[in-house]
Design a protein around this nucleic acid. Structure first.
Length: 506
RNA sequence: GGCCCAUUCGUCUAUCGGUUAGGACGCAAGAUUUUCAUUCUUGAAAGGGGAGUUCGAUUCUCCCAUGGGCUACCA
C-alpha cells in the first residue's frame, strides 16, 4: 500500500439489467472520492455470468451515468491503457492466473456436479465445501493424479476452487467501518473458475483486474463485506498484498417503508423511480420509470443521492457536483443503511428549479407547448416561468400551473365561483372594465394604483372585486399577482376575459 | 442455523464524555390582510433495552433485542 500511489477507483457493474439507484450512488461516491484526490475513475463491465447477461444493459449504464454527470477517465467506451475493460474479453488473462494458483497449490480442480452439490446440501443444510469436507468430494486433492489427469483429458466439466487454509485470521481495514475480523474457517473453497463457459467467477476476476488495473481503492456496497476476506486471501495467494487496494463498504439503500433493501418493486409499488433512466425489460417488456423521464434534473438526483449516506458535517444542503467533489470525505459516510426517502428528492428538484435560468427552462418547454398548438415564444414562456415555477416541483407541472397564460379559461371552477363571485361582481367588473379600457397597460403599477383608488372610492374593499377579477382571468382562485398576469396576457385579452366572465356568470 | 455489519425525531443526519441533543425533508400553526403557491416565523417530533467504566454517558465496553447483509459453478 504505497502512500504515493495514484488514486484509481473503478465502478464495476454487472450488465444484468437497469442500473439500480443504489449502484448509481456507489458510482457517485467512487467518482467523488477519485476526483477529490485527483484520481482516475474506471468503468469495468463485469459480465462473467453469461447466463444473466442482458443486452442493452451496458449502454444503459453508460447513458445513465453520463446523464447524471458522472464521468469516466477510462474503461469500456472511454479508452485507457489497462484494457480490455470488459471481463468477457479477458478470458485468457484469467486463465493464466488460475493456472498460477493451481501450480502454486493454492487452488484445485473440482469435478463435483451441480446435482451432487445440491444433494450434499439437501442432506446437510450447513454443508460447506471447505477443509473439513473437501476430501470427501471429487477433486484433485481427493482423487489420484492419474484419475485427475484422465478426467481433464477426457474433457470433464470442472471448476477450480480456492483452497482456503483454516485457522487464519483475516483483518479488513475498512475506510468506513474500521477493523473487521474474519476467521478463514467460516469461508468455503470458493469457485474461482468455471470450465463450462471458460470464465472466472466474480471473485477471481475482480481481484485480478483490480490488481492489473492498479486500482488503489475499492468502494462498493456493504453486500461485499463478507466476501472481502476471500479477496484478501486471493491477494495473498498471488503475492500482491503489498499493493492491495484499500476497501470501503458503503451502507445499503433500504426500502422507504417496511424491511429489506430497496428494489425495483418498491418503485412500482410506491410510485417513484429506482432507475436513472426509463428501462424496458427486454424479456417481459415491462417499463420501469427513470428519474430523467420522471422530470428530475440530474443535479437534483446527484445532490439527493450524495446526502443519502454521507454528509459534510456542515448544515449545507445544496451542492453542485464540484462542491461535492471538494467536500467529499469517505470517512464521513454513515455506517447504517438509509431508508430511501424520495420526498426529499422532490424538494431538491424544486430547489434546482428555482435556481435554473428561465430561458433555458423555457427552451425545454417549447416543444410541449407547440404540440398543444400554442403559439408562443421562449421569452414569453420564460416570463411565465418566473411567475409560476415557485409552485412547481417538476417541469411537467408547468401546464397545470400556467395554462391561463396561454389561453382563456375554458370554464370557471365551481367552488371558486360560489365563493368569490358575488351578486355585485357583474356590476363591479363592468366598472373595472371601463377603468382598464381607459388605460394603455404600459405601467402595471400605475394601473394597479388606479384600480386600488377605484376600490377605495367606492368602498368595495379589495377582496371582492379582485377575487372576481382573478376568477375571470384564471378560471380559478389561484395564481400569481393579478397585475403580473394582466401584464403578460395584455390589454385585449384581459378585457375579453373580463367580458366573457360577466357574460357567463352574470 | 452460521458469520458479519448496523441502531439519535416518521425520514436523511449533526454530536468525535459535560449541548436547552442541532439542521434538512415531511407534518401542523401563524404571517405576507386579493387568491393559490412560494417565502418567512413558530411548533410538535429522537438517543432500542439492560449491565458496566466514569464525577458525568447519545458518545467507551459487554450482553440482549431489533434491523440489514452474506452464506451459489450470481454479481
Amino acid at each position: 500500500m504505497s502512500a504515493t500511489r495514484k488514486v484509481r477507483v473503478r465502478f464495476a457493474p454487472s450488465p444484468t439489467g437497469a442500473l439500480h439507484i443504489g449502484g448509481v450512488r456507489t458510482a457517485l461516491y467512487n467518482y467523488l472520492f477519485a476526483k477529490n484526490l485527483g484520481g482516475d475513475m474506471i468503468l469495468r463491465i463485469e459480465d462473467t455470468d453469461s447466463k444473466r447477461f442482458v443486452p442493452g444493459a451496458e449502454d444503459y449504464i453508460v447513458e445513465g451515468l453520463t446523464w447524471l454527470g458522472i464521468k469516466f477517465d477510462e474503461g469500456v467506451g472511454f479508452g485507457g491503457n489497462y484494457g480490455p475493460y470488459r471481463q468477457s474479453e479477458r478470458r485468457d488473462i484469467y486463465k493464466r492466473y488460475v493456472d498460477e494458483l493451481l501450480a502454486k497449490g493454492k487452488a484445485y480442480y473440482a469435478f463435483d456436479t451441480a446435482a451432487e452439490l445440491d444433494a450434499k446440501r439437501a442432506e446437510n443444510a450447513n454443508f460447506q465445501y471447505d477443509a473439513h469436507t473437501r476430501m470427501q468430494m471429487n477433486n484433485s486433492l481427493s482423487l489420484s493424479a492419474e484419475e485427475v489427469q484422465a478426467r481433464l483429458e477426457r474433457g470433464d466439466v470442472y471448476t477450480v476452487r480456492f483452497k482456503i487454509d483454516p485457522d487464519q485470521l483475516i483483518e479488513i481495514n475498512d475506510m468506513i467501518r474500521g477493523e473487521v475480523h474474519y476467521k478463514s474457517d467460516v469461508l468455503d473453497d470458493k469457485v474461482l473458475y468455471k470450465s463450462a463457459d471458460q470464465l472466472p467467477t466474480y471473485h477471481l476476476a475482480n481481484v485480478v483486474d483490480d490488481h492489473l488495473m492498479e486500482v488503489s481503492h475499492v468502494i462498493r456496497g456493504e453486500e461485499w463485506l463478507p466476501s472481502t476476506p476471500l479477496h484478501i486471501l486471493l491477494y495473498r495467494a498471488f503475492g500482491w498484498e503489498d499493493t492491495m487496494p484499500q476497501f470501503a463498504h458503503l451502507p445499503l439503500l433500504l426500502k422507504p417503508d417496511g424491511k429489506g433493501k430497496l428494489s425495483k418493486r418498491d418503485g412500482d409499488r410506491l410510485n417513484f423511480p429506482v432507475f436513472p433512466l426509463d428501462w424496458k425489460d427486454p424479456v417481459s417488456g415491462d417499463i420501469s420509470k427513470g428519474y430523467r423521464e420522471a422530470g428530475y434534473f440530474p443535479e437534483a438526483v446527484i445532490n439527493f443521492l450524495a446526502l443519502l449516506g454521507w454528509n459534510p458535517g456542515t448544515e449545507q444542503e445544496m451542492f453542485s457536483m464540484d462542491e461535492l467533489i471538494q467536500a467529499f470525505n469517505i470517512q464521513r459516510c454513515s455506517k447504517a443503511g438509509a431508508k430511501f426517502d424520495y420526498e426529499k428528492g422532490k424538494w431538491f428538484n424544486h430547489q434546482y428549479m428555482l435556481l435554473k435560468d428561465n430561458m433555458e427552462l423555457a427552451a425545454t418547454l417549447l416543444p410541449e407547448l407547440q404540440a398543444k398548438g400554442i403559439e408562443t415564444t421562449q421569452a414569453y414562456v420564460a416570463e411565465v416561468l418566473a411567475l409560476v415555477k415557485g409552485r412547481m416541483n417538476f417541469l411537467h407541472e408547468f401546464w397545470a400551473n400556467a395554462a391561463y397564460f396561454f389561453q382563456a379559461p375554458q370554464s370557471y371552477d365551481e367552488k371558486t365561483v360560489s365563493k368569490r363571485w358575488k351578486d355585485v361582481s357583474a356590476m363591479q367588473m363592468g366598472e373595472l372594465e371601463a377603468i382598464l379600457q381607459a388605460d394603455d397597460f404600459s405601467d402595471m403599477a400605475a394601473l394597479e394604483a388606479k384600480v386600488a383608488a377605484w376600490c377605495e372610492e367606492k368602498a368595495y374593499g379589495m377582496g371582492v372585486p379582485m377575487n372576481a377579477f382573478r376568477l375571470a382571468l384564471v378560471g380559478e382562485g389561484k395564481g400569481p399577482h393579478i397585475f403580473d398576469i394582466t401584464r403578460l396576457i395584455g390589454k385585449a385579452e384581459t378585457l375579453q376575459r373580463l367580458r366573457r366572465c360577466v357574460e357567463v356568470l352574470g
